[in-house]
Amino acid sequence: MRVTMLILILGMGTVTFIPRFLPMAFLTRWGLPKRVKEGLDYIPISILSAIVFPILFFNEEGTVGIRAHYILSAIPVFIFSWKAKSLWGSVLLGMLVYWGLGFVL
């Protein structure tokens, strides 16, 4: 059991490293077509949208739906982040609003 766990953890460590390393290793040497480079400018916004929006529109059971508690908490965080651009502030505000809404909803 111990050995299997060790293999498992080492295996997971290796496969999480591969997709992180290969592009960095090769693309820093090869160079990319101009269009692809410009396209990469949209990767951060695309990936973060893909992380955030499903949180708001999927229930815990994994079905599509309006998750009102989350969406209502998200709106002030969106506005605050836009104005203040503060990570700590956004997290605290988000937790507070979510907690407060818990009493109302």
Partner: peptide
């Protein structure tokens, strides 16, 4: 599940999203 903890990580990602715009 208390004190808004379920929404902490979501808030972080929302802010990270907004600062990319």
């Amino acid at each position: 599940k208390e004190y808004g903890i379920p929404f902490a990580l979501s808030s972080l990602f929302i802010c990270l999203l907004v600062i990319q715009i």
